[in-house]
């Protein structure tokens, strides 16, 4: 088997895994939310999400009928000998997974509304980050349309520090979370230029839910924001309750003195992701 077809198989398995099996950290977070949810409707909704996850896994059915925009976050070792061939394999894996699982055809021409399946200009979405080393790690994320519409790019008045950033993020989340299938995961990218702030917010969504940022000040901001979001009363499915978010993940970059862009990306409770690693020999294995 050629390297390329080995990768297509491995990435295809990751797409299937993400589509039908909720990651263990997400399921754990939902169970924890259920134990502390005071709202009766909220508990009914959390139980329904967990029951849906069980049925999806056992029967091999997609968790959500919106199987999402396929997004790949690639952390590519600069010394990997395989970089030239990876993008084509990701595209082919998306095409074959669409037919095999099947995924819902969800790529539409923005002007004519023509549906082309899940492969077209710019789709699947591939985010490249060049890192040191010889390995390539590929994280697949299924991004639903409802949560994508809740994305925000905020320009915060510089000089207000963490409190001003938290206030702006909270106001945004309060407005959009009900339509993003809560309990959501909140990715926040602080600083950089506007486009980088959004990329950081998206990359923050690939982190496991129970891991905080290594920088203690950023980790503290994550905890404060999670507590504040869960005090908004939006709750599961946006129908009231405590479990509005399962996690808040923050990434940051240095900023221009006059500019403080903050990107906010939300993922629905069906936080579908799976990863594959390609080592220096070209062998592909699932990352658990």
């Amino acid at each position: 088997m050629s390297k390329s077809s080995e990768w297509i198989d491995a990435v295809g398995r990751a797409i299937r895994e993400a589509t039908v099996a909720l990651p263990a950290d997400v399921e754990r977070a939902l169970r924890e939310a259920l134990t502390s949810e005071p709202s009766e409707l909220g508990r009914l909704h959390l139980e329904t999400l967990l029951e849906n996850a069980r049925v999806a896994r056992e029967e091999g059915l997609p968790i959500c009928q919106d199987t999402g925009t396929p997004v790949f976050f690639v952390r590519a070792g600069a010394e990997s000998p395989w970089l030239a061939d990876i993008e084509a394999a990701l595209v082919e894996a998306t095409r074959s997974a669409t037919a095999a699982i099947p995924l819902r055809p969800s790529a539409i021409h923005p002007l004519t509304d023509r549906n082309v399946g899940n492969v077209g200009r710019g789709v699947p979405v591939i985010d490249w980050e060049i890192v040191p080393g010889r390995e390539v790690e590929i994280t697949y994320v299924a991004k639903g349309g409802g949560s994508e519409n809740a994305t925000g790019l905020l320009f915060v008045q510089p000089g207000g520090g963490a409190a001003e950033i938290a206030r702006a993020v909270l106001a945004h989340v309060a407005r959009v979370a009900p339509r993003a299938c809560p309990p959501i995961v909140v990715g926040v990218g602080i600083g950089g230029t506007a486009d980088r702030a959004l990329v950081l917010a998206k990359r923050a969504l690939t982190r496991r839910l129970d891991i905080h940022h290594a920088d203690p000040a950023i980790a503290a901001l994550e905890r404060d924001l999670l507590e504040a979001v869960n005090g908004l009363g939006i709750g599961p499915a946006g129908l009231g309750g405590a479990a509005t978010a399962l996690a808040v993940h923050v990434e940051f970059a240095f900023r221009h003195p006059a500019s403080l862009p903050v990107g906010v990306a939300l993922q629905c409770w069906a936080d579908r992701r799976a990863a594959v690693r390609i080592d220096a020999s070209g062998a592909a294995e699932a990352v658990l």
């Binding site: 849906n52 059915l61 959500c64 499915a237 629905c268």
Partner: peptide, 13 residues
């Protein structure tokens, strides 16, 4: 009526 978002498998059944 609000349905529970993201419960496509239960819906299919």
């Amino acid at each position: 009526l609000a349905a529970v978002g993201g419960t496509g498998a239960l819906g299919a059944r």
